[in-house]
């Protein structure tokens, strides 16, 4: 156990050393959301409701998108794929820790520090925005918050596992970090991160409701806005999806260790 605590501590220190970068990311990631506020405000100047969503609810929706992105997002793909390409992972393969564990603990450490910085920042941002925009308040019982928390964990795991899969594909494909872009676009399109699923064209809506990605953004945000978990929401699809991803990662990792040639480059 000590080993793991030490790993987290080390990664927190490294992240701290990059604290100015973390702060900058926070600020930069907030810009698109603020712009969205202005866009929706201008759209709602001619109407009260769009698909039964009011302006305050729409604004709250995007704030929650920002919060969820900050808590669940992963950005380690490019760095790790480059490590593989340069043949720099010998070190990790020799140690009892392993490459996957190294990625995991670094990610956790970095995320913890990020949240220590991010949560106050987000609180300040939300406060600031609510001074200028009509943002709706969230009124939800504890049970709903717990489900929201569970779905946040789901989102975190999906981002992490998908990131891991991209990294592992780096053992076979040059430039597999480019797959990050497909990941982002897919998640944006089908999870409700880009726009509430109810506003998507019919065909895209059906696809989103069929896929588990909606549990990353659309579902958790809606249960908070509604203040209740509707009966047609089941936690089984997300659980199955996670299991599927874990299986995929395990299979890829086994194959990867066989394929890895430490000459890299």
């Amino acid at each position: 156990m000590k080993k793991y605590l030490y790993r987290i501590k080390l990664s927190i220190m490294i992240s701290f050393w990059h604290r100015s970068e973390l702060l900058l990311w926070l600020f930069l990631d907030a810009i698109p959301i603020v712009i969205m506020f202005f866009v929706w405000q201008s759209i709602y100047s001619t109407k009260e409701m769009i698909e039964s969503i009011s302006l305050p609810e729409m604004l709250q929706y995007y704030l929650l998108v920002l919060v969820i992105t900050n808590i669940t997002g992963s950005h380690f793909e490019s760095f790790r794929v480059e490590q593989i390409r340069m043949g720099k992972i010998d070190f990790f393969l020799l140690k009892p820790f392993g490459f996957l564990a190294e990625i995991f603990w670094t990610h956790i450490g970095g995320k913890l520090l990020y949240l220590v910085l991010a949560l106050p920042f987000l609180a300040a941002l939300i406060y600031l925005l609510s001074q200028y925009f009509p943002v709706s308040m969230i009124n939800a019982p504890l049970a709903v918050w717990l489900v929201f928390g569970a779905l946040l964990l789901f989102g975190f795991l999906v981002e992490y596992l998908l990131g891991l899969i991209i990294v592992l594909l780096g053992f076979w494909f040059e430039g597999s970090e480019g797959l990050e872009h497909f990941k982002w676009i897919s998640i944006s399109l089908f999870s409700g991160a880009m726009i509430p699923i109810a506003l998507l064209p019919e065909w895209l809506q059906s696809a989103s409701y069929a896929l588990p990605l909606q549990y990353m953004y659309g579902v958790p945000i809606n249960i908070l806005l509604d203040g209740a978990v509707s009966s047609d929401i089941s936690l089984l699809p997300p659980v199955f999806f996670i299991c599927f991803l874990i299986l995929l990662v395990t299979l890829l990792w086994r194959k990867a260790v066989h394929t890895y040639a430490s000459s890299g480059g």
């Binding site: 501590k9 927190i12 220190m13 701290f16 050393w17 604290r19």
Partner: peptide
């Protein structure tokens, strides 16, 4: 050195 050193350097 250490985490405290990192925080102090702020």
């Amino acid at each position: 050195p250490g985490v405290w050193g990192s925080i102090k350097s702020l």
